[in-house]
């Protein structure tokens, strides 16, 4: 029993990098993460978004070259780069909104002060 597992895992282990399956699903996930980031307004002015695009482009190239292991790694990294870009963009927007609100409150306080 344990010998069979040992052999099996040895085979799988040795097969390793040479025959990683093509990461189609990961490529789709990454593409969607990039679209999602762009949809909330992330652009190449965000370093993380640039990284995501560059890595995804490389991953596509690796897919064509059937270097699936590298393609998967790059696509996984690109997915999280894109998600971070999205989170940074949303956080930045929420900070801008706070700045606007603070200015508005400041104006209201002044108006109130001038009435008293």
């Amino acid at each position: 029993m344990s010998l069979r597992y040992l052999l099996l895992s040895a085979v799988v282990g040795m097969a390793g990098c040479a025959s990683d399956p093509a990461p189609f699903e990961q490529m789709r996930l990454t593409e969607r993460a990039l679209e999602q980031a762009a949809a909330v307004g992330a652009t190449t002015s965000t370093q993380e978004y640039r990284l995501a695009e560059e890595r995804f482009a490389l991953a596509k190239k690796n897919m064509q070259e059937q270097d699936y292991r590298r393609a998967r790694m790059l696509a996984e990294q690109a997915e999280l780069d894109a998600r971070l870009a999205e989170a940074l963009t949303l956080r930045g927007e929420s900070e801008q909104a706070i700045t606007v609100q603070n200015a508005r409150i400041e104006r209201l306080r002044k108006q109130l002060g001038s009435l008293r």
Binding site: L80, R83, L84, A87, S94, A97
Partner: peptide, 23 residues
């Protein structure tokens, strides 16, 4: 790298939630 990214995303997301609450 992936772990760092997840941590950063978690932090940004949390900051967003805090900002929304402040808003």
């Amino acid at each position: 790298y992936l772990s760092q990214r997840y941590s950063q995303i978690a932090r940004e997301h949390d900051q967003l939630v805090r900002n929304q609450q402040q808003s």
